[in-house]
Amino acid sequence: MIGLYVPGDSFLHRAPAGVKLLVLAAGLAAFGLLRGLGAVVVAAAVEVGLALAAGLGPRTVLAHLRPLRWILIVIGSLQAWLSGWQPAVVVCGSIVVAVLGASLVTLTTRTEDLLTALERGLGPARHLGVRPDRVALVLALVVRAVPVLSRIAGEVHQARAARGAQRSMRAFAVPFVIRSVRYADRLGEALAARGVDD
C-alpha cells in the first residue's frame, strides 16, 4: 500500500519521527494559545520555509489542503459576513496552518517510522495489558486484508448486477459483510495454526 510519504533527504526527512511529532504538538499548542493574525503569518511563513527546505513542491503540499476547500469557503464567507474580513482571515489561516503543519510531518516521515514511534509510545501501556507485538500484527493484517476485501467487493458487485439488483444497497452489503466475516474466520484459523493463541 502506498503511503503519502514523499521520499527525500532533507533535514526534515532525516529528523526522528518522535521528535517531529513532539515539535508538531508543541507548535500547534503554542499556536492555539497565541491565536491571531500575527501568529498565523509567522506560522505560515515557518511552514512554507520548512516545505521549501524539504523540497516539497507546491502541488504536493496543496493536494493536502484540497479537502479543506469547501469548509474554507463556507467558513470564510460566514466569518467575513458576521465579523469582518480580519477574523475570517485568522480563522481560515489557523485551519490551514494546523493542517499544513501536520501534513509536513506526514509528507516527510515513512509510515513504518511513524508506526515504530507509536509502538514506542505504547510501551507504558504494556502494564494495562496492551501487547505491542499484537498491535503490530493487527495493523499488518489490515494492510493485507484490504486487497482481499476489495476483490470480494468487486465480485459481489458483479453478482448483484447479474441478478439485476444494481440499485439495491442491501444486495451488496449483506453478502459483502458475510463473505468478509468468512474470510476473517479462515484468517483466524491460519493465525491459530501459527500459534498466535499461545
Binding site: 499484537r134 500484527l137 493487527v138 493484517l141 489490515v142 493485507r144 486484508a145 484490504v146 482481499v148 476485501l149 459483510v177 468478509s180 466475516v181 474470510y183 476473517a184 474466520d185 484468517l187 483466524g188 484459523e189 493465525l191 491459530a192 498466535v196 493463541d197
Partner: peptide, 14 residues
C-alpha cells in the same frame, strides 16, 4: 483470541 484479531483486522479493512 486469534479469531478476534482476524475479525478486528478484517473490519478495519472493511
Amino acid at each position: 483470541s486469534a479469531r478476534d484479531l482476524a475479525l478486528v483486522a478484517v473490519f478495519a479493512a472493511l
